[in-house]
């Protein structure tokens, strides 16, 4: 597919611009934190950029935790199908 046929949103230079725009917005939200006071009464939430780093860190934590759990819990898509198709008919059980 040539560059012309690709949707503008998928072109490399535009993806780069989107990233730059996103990072600018992120910085603005942190800057805005200087002008307001969080008052949830615990103290820590009023430190600058608390919600920014807390959101980031907890999300990374959740993704990593899910990934690790996945090693234990993930099974092929047809994991249950294999079994249910065999059912009671195997082992030569007769239906009378």
């Amino acid at each position: 597919m040539s560059e012309q046929n690709i949707h503008w949103l998928l072109r490399k230079e535009n993806i780069r611009k989107l990233w730059i725009g996103f990072i600018i917005i992120l910085m603005l939200t942190v800057l805005a934190g200087f002008f307001v006071h969080q008052h949830e009464s615990f103290g820590i939430e009023d430190s600058v950029g608390f919600f920014a780093w807390y959101g980031f860190v907890t999300c990374v934590g959740m993704v990593v935790f899910a990934k690790l759990l996945g090693f234990v819990l993930k099974r092929p898509e047809n994991y249950y199908d294999d079994d249910t198709n065999q059912g009671l008919n195997e082992n030569g059980v007769e239906h009378d």
Binding site: F22, I25, L26, T29, V30, G33, G49, F50, F51, A52, W53, Y54, G55, F56, C59, V60, V63, V64, K67, G70, V72, L73, K74, R75, P76, E77, Y79, Y80
Partner: peptide
């Protein structure tokens, strides 16, 4: 702050979130 940085985490961690043909127990 909370949501947009969660969004940042999503795109940073994207390689770890590659979909696989699996179900979960």
């Amino acid at each position: 702050q909370l949501l947009l940085f969660a969004g940042l985490a999503f795109f940073v961690m994207l390689p770890m979130m590659k979909r696989t043909l699996t179900i979960s127990l």
